[in-house]
């Protein structure tokens, strides 16, 4: 299953255009949170994604769900960006387009890399306050109030706009998009496409070269398994299990287990 992954060994990045095609579950939750805010007060929702041309589909989907606008940041020079550069590129666009009291809403983490880094890093780039893992977001009198449960602490936090929130994966169950909505979405042509030049990225900007981290190697965890097969009497196989893997087992249990006294010689 893994040998067929769209991994580009030359550049050391995932060919996302082959792996992508659907809005990430985390982003759907962020969009849902935005839609719920818009149901209670006037708001303009701009859905932004960065990716290959194909990512346009996600924006159609976002608009069908209720976003007012879709913007695709796409350029060959952006390909291969890590979280560090992704947040930089997203920030460039937001700085150009948004002034005053805006709220950036992100999913906490994507399902393909799960780093949970882009949201916090984007807030650094924009120099705005950020509250992560939000379970509930409300805007009252231009103050953002967030409820969240993090590391066994339940907190209520406030910040002024502009600000950024990341929506927890357990919050805001996304609404269902009816089929007619999907069809309508693809009739809607006005997705804005922004490239590196329009963003004012340096002429020599190249995401792959500029990323501070480098992937050296990628492998499948299952392909590495030795798959030992043990057969025979139950007593024998259980003894064998503890003889060979007793250390692994006792360390995971957090208890010492006596090992068999074998001749070491």
């Amino acid at each position: 299953m893994v040998s067929e992954l769209p991994w580009d060994s030359r550049t050391g990045t995932l060919k996302r255009d082959l792996a992508q095609g659907m809005m990430d579950p985390a982003s759907r939750r962020a969009l849902e949170a935005a839609l719920q805010i818009k149901e209670t007060q006037p708001a303009y929702i701009c859905a932004i994604t960065m990716g290959p041309a194909m990512a346009r589909e996600i924006l159609h989907q976002a608009m069908a769900l209720g976003a007012d606008e879709g913007v695709l940041l796409s350029d060959r020079r952006m390909a291969g960006a890590d979280t560090f550069l992704t947040s930089h590129i997203l920030a460039r666009f937001i700085q150009k387009e948004c002034q005053g009291e805006y709220l950036v809403m992100c999913g906490t983490q994507t399902s393909d890399s799960e780093t949970a880094q882009v949201g916090p890093q984007l807030s650094e780039e924009l120099n705005i306050p950020a509250i992560t893992y939000a379970g509930h977001v409300e805007i009252k009198d231009r103050v953002v109030e967030v409820h969240r449960h993090v590391d066994e602490f339940f907190e209520i936090l406030n910040m002024d706009l502009p600000g950024l929130v990341t929506i927890d994966l357990s919050a805001y169950k996304p609404r269902y998009l009816a089929l007619e909505g999907v069809e309508k979405a693809f009739e809607n042509p006005d997705i804005r496409h922004i490239d590196a030049r329009q963003l004012g990225l340096d002429a020599d900007f190249n995401a792959l070269k500029d990323s501070p981290t480098r992937i050296m190697d990628v492998y499948s965890p299952t392909a590495q398994k030795e798959n030992r097969v043990l057969k025979g009497a139950v007593k024998k196989v259980v003894d064998q299990l503890f003889d060979d893997y007793g250390k692994v087992i006792s360390s995971a249990m957090g208890k010492d287990l006596k090992t068999h006294e074998h001749d070491e010689a």
Partner: peptide, 29 residues
């Protein structure tokens, strides 16, 4: 079994009981 690091070909319930017994012995003292 194919995706396991260790694949034990045996009756599941018997092996469960066998491991219980082994741990009780080994954790003793």
């Amino acid at each position: 079994m194919k995706m396991a690091d260790v694949a034990i070909v045996a009756d599941a319930n018997q092996v469960c009981l066998g491991i219980i017994k082994a741990i009780k012995e080994k954790a003793r003292d």
